[in-house]
Design a protein around this nucleic acid. Sequence first.
DNA 1: CATCTGGTATGCGTAGTGCGCATGGACTTC
DNA 2: GAAGTCCATGCGCACTACGCATACCAGATG
Lengths: 297, 297
Amino acid sequence: MDFSSTALRVLRQVADSGSFTAAASQLGYTQSAISRQAAALERSAGAVLFERRSDGVRLTPAGLTLLRHARTILESVAAAEQEITASAAPTALVRLGMFPSAGAVLLPGVLARLATAAPHITVTTREGTTPALLRALRAGSIDIAVLTSRPPHRPSDGESPRLHIEPVEDTELLLGAPTTGLFAGRTAVHVDELVDAPWIAAPSTSTEPLLGVWPGLPGRPRIVHTTRDWLTKLQLVAGGFGVTTIPSRMSAVLPPGVSALRVQGVPQEVRRILTARLPGRPEPGITEVLRAVTSAL
Amino acid sequence: MDFSSTALRVLRQVADSGSFTAAASQLGYTQSAISRQAAALERSAGAVLFERRSDGVRLTPAGLTLLRHARTILESVAAAEQEITASAAPTALVRLGMFPSAGAVLLPGVLARLATAAPHITVTTREGTTPALLRALRAGSIDIAVLTSRPPHRPSDGESPRLHIEPVEDTELLLGAPTTGLFAGRTAVHVDELVDAPWIAAPSTSTEPLLGVWPGLPGRPRIVHTTRDWLTKLQLVAGGFGVTTIPSRMSAVLPPGVSALRVQGVPQEVRRILTARLPGRPEPGITEVLRAVTSAL
DNA sequence: CATCTGGTATGCGTAGTGCGCATGGACTTC
DNA sequence: GAAGTCCATGCGCACTACGCATACCAGATG
């Protein structure tokens, strides 16, 4: 019989929320994850803890028993956390989440700016997709999310609490192509030249609009490599193995052998960079970091 | 900040034992595992908890703080366990650990015997290597270990507590070969016929004496397939893709196409089957299962 | 009844974690 | 300095956690 504190938190939240789905959105997980956590908890407790009903979940007697202990355990955990972190250095911590290419193109600028403007702030970062970052934000595991969106820039999702969203900059999607070869010496290409191009894309989950390939091309694109890592992508392009899309700000950090080209013959592809945070008055450190993100661009 | 109860148990045991190594053997882990658990615990607590000294480990102030809370948390966990299992059915549970091929050749017999002789006993089983089973036994996560040993049958390991070990049966190692083909119609082979045979072995960790290949053959054996699974092994043999060693008791459950042959020209290879349990007077359920194991053979 | 709208379970694929094995470095003891 | 402690760590493997997509189920609504 072995419990992790996350499992106990799940139990508590399910008890408080009355359903797996609600608990999931409170905790920043998907419903699937909560369902499995619940099943695992029952397995490790050796008893049925949840009574699944058509309108949600209620705790069985065994579940209520465990809940009682879970609350005291979680209190102890919180107390321990309190005591231990109290003795540590009191530097302000801001947890930043951002879309993957932000790490290369704007994180260094943000950190550099903060190092002089607000050296007492410690920034930790993590990467993620837009939905993952929004979940993390609502769950309180990050303080700021740096996102991209494509037009039309509707308010991302309709869940509550409404997030405080602020546009930072509109940027243009460009084509990353080998400096030598087919497009050598050019500064732009026509979209018709791309229909049969070999693309280097991100692994897609069939739900996302296929990152890395120019949007709206007719037919099925010819994807020759897939990788999540930007350095890999760019080195593949430099090696002449394909082309990929790049945000315009990334042209500042392209390795030798890769050129950024505009694409003509179609309307500009605009990507908006924006920040999201929970509503209400932010802590001063968060404001400081938001300012650094805005001005680093 | 997220703690699993195993991590807290590790903390407590390290505090009580005074070293990672001692805690490891108490808890049935390797030293390596404890070292990593400790590092992970420090990472998740965000503080240095252990002071590594040349003669062991002592807790830092932060470690002592967490230890205090860990004890109360573990008490709550134990209390929860108590309450929940108290309301469950009071069937005796015996946890059996055994070497891999025992599952096929003797577990069915043991369970059948128990079903009539002691139907109130619930038996759970797991497989493992001899050292893993001995660790589990000492750690209290299994009640009985069913092991094999090869001569000389020395007392397995010298650690304390001394285990209560009882031989069950001596059995002979045989050769599993395709019924048709090179050895068709034979009941025995000479060891010289095996020097260039294609072997189907278990994946070896270079520390074990290479299971599945006849021991003591000159030269390096020609291993054509490796698998841990007995059914796979036997089906490969049946298909004529190689030969392997089998314990003599398994000849009762060989699939069609596989024959068990004696090996001549060398002394019999004897494998002893034995049971191990912690010393002292065993619970009645354990005695019952031990008796079933002995008499099922 | 058909359908829709809440809910939970589950197959699948992937990234991450836990752990054993082997080894290496630091320190103590003889 | 040789041997015996101890802890840390690279490697490989199996397992787990989780997200996505989908299936399924019960009650409300047409």
